[in-house]
Simulated assay, not measured.
Amino acid sequence: MVVFGHSASNIKGDLNYHEFVRLIYSFHMEFFFFISGLFALLSIKKRKGRLFSNKVKTLLYPFLCGLF
């Protein structure tokens, strides 16, 4: 997603292509934060209940704030 977005900034003329890139830029950082949180959750299995609720508070809330 990042490579696609950066390479698309050099293409001129195609409006639909640039609108698609703008769509990607509207959520890609929040999406990567959310995905990294999910992988961290999978890698740490010892503290199941408390870890999940903590990840929801620390990752989902900023993700949703970043969308709006």
Rank of each mutant, 00 (worst) to 15 (best):
S53T: 13
I24H: 11
A8Q: 12
E19R: 11
L60H: 02
L15E: 14
L67S: 06
C65E: 14
L64G: 01
S7L: 14
K57G: 07
K48W: 07
F34E: 02
K57P: 03
G5Y: 15
F32C: 04
S9F: 10
I24G: 03
H18T: 06
K48L: 11
F4Q: 09
F31L: 12
A40E: 06
Y61N: 09
F39R: 06
G5D: 11
G13D: 04
Y61T: 14
K46P: 00
A40N: 04
L67F: 06
V3T: 07
V21T: 14
R47D: 12
L41W: 04
F68H: 06
G49D: 09
H28F: 12
C65G: 01
V3D: 10
H18V: 01
F32Y: 08
F34A: 00
V3W: 11
L38R: 05
I44K: 07
A40P: 04
V21Q: 15
F34D: 00
I24R: 13
N54L: 09
P62Y: 01
L67M: 11
E30P: 04
S53L: 14
G37L: 00
G37C: 01
S7V: 13
R47F: 08
H6Q: 11
I44M: 01
F52E: 05
I35C: 06
R22F: 00
G5H: 09
I24Q: 11
S36P: 00
F4D: 07
L64V: 15
T58L: 05
Y17V: 13
L60P: 00
K55C: 14
E19I: 11
L51F: 11
F39E: 00
K55A: 15
F31V: 09
F31D: 10
L60T: 02
S36K: 07
I44C: 02
N10Y: 07
M29V: 06
N54C: 04
G66I: 05
D14Q: 05
E19Y: 10
F31G: 05
L41E: 02
V3R: 10
D14H: 09
K46E: 15
F27Y: 14
L42S: 03
